[in-house]
Amino acid sequence: MSDRETGTADVGSSAGGRGPYVESTIIMTTVRVVAPFVLTLGLFVMFHGADSAGGGFQGGAIAGSVVLMLAFAFGIGPVRDWIHPGILLGLMVAGVLTFVGVGALTLLLGGNFLEYGVIPIYHASAYSIELIELGIGAIVVSIITGLFFAIAGGMEGPGAEPKPAEEATVTEDEA
């Protein structure tokens, strides 16, 4: 709650100051303890969706919320710098390509679109469904975190322009 009041005051006094982030030991400690469990739950829901409640959409949303939690606890800027810009786009495209790829593979093997039984591996149907769930999870994770950072970036207003340069330096440093 104090987050927002300080944030509003900041925006009021200096346009586009530090944003809504306020360092809080309670939030940081809580997130540090909770985040590994939430990430594990998200991956479990994603991987185990074929045999219990859940699936790619749900698991992806839970796993994506871990990044959001980290950003709330440790600041949006550091978390954004920590994520390579290509990762989110790559995950997004890889998820769609996985799904389409499995469908195309079944077509090539002479079956109908997404007719898993024609793939000549052990338990083809179960493994194909797991793979597709993972693809959906990748799409949902990347879109949720992407939307979050897009909204957070929009909040910076005029300060958003120098950002591509920042990113360029970051990628150069990492490369």
């Binding site: 045999d51 699936g55 997004m92 679109f113 997404l114 149907s125 179960a126 597709i132 799409i139």
Partner: peptide, 29 residues
């Protein structure tokens, strides 16, 4: 070969629909 019937319907019986939904999320991004 999956136990969760919801997943079976989403990913197998209605797999084409689910591909559409996944592409909708992708398109939103």
């Amino acid at each position: 070969e999956v136990d969760n019937v919801v997943t079976a319907v989403l990913a197998a019986y209605r797999g084409f629909d689910t591909l559409g939904e996944a592409v909708v999320v992708f398109s939103a991004g």
